[in-house]
């Protein structure tokens, strides 16, 4: 499974659990518009860390939290293996 697909699957799974109705996910969609609150994002980051072995937001101290879904996916794609 590609990193992008893993991220999107995890977002959908958590949306289901948290009873969040997601708009259509596109790279331009702002994370705010996903309907996720900070707890949902915290869950997402933790699960992705377990699945991919990385937490891009803790590795780099100056990493700004992404603004859009595309930024979020790229944060995982750009982690050096």
């Amino acid at each position: 499974m590609s990193v992008r697909l893993k991220v999107i699957e995890a977002i959908k799974q958590i949306a289901k659990e948290q009873h969040v109705t997601l708009p259509e996910l596109s790279d331009e969609l702002s994370l705010h518009e996903t309907g996720f609150d900070s707890l949902a994002f915290a869950i997402l980051v933790a699960r992705l860390e377990d699945e991919t072995g990385v937490d891009p937001f803790t590795i780099s101290e100056d990493a700004a939290f992404p603004a859009t879904v595309g930024d979020f996916v790229r944060a995982y794609e750009n982690v050096p293996a």
Binding site: S38, L39, F41, A42, I43, V45, A46, F57, T58, F65
Partner: peptide, 12 residues
């Protein structure tokens, strides 16, 4: 608890 960059901590 497990540290989280978003909320400080989450339950695992």
């Amino acid at each position: 608890s497990r540290r989280s960059p978003i909320t400080g901590g989450i339950v695992v």
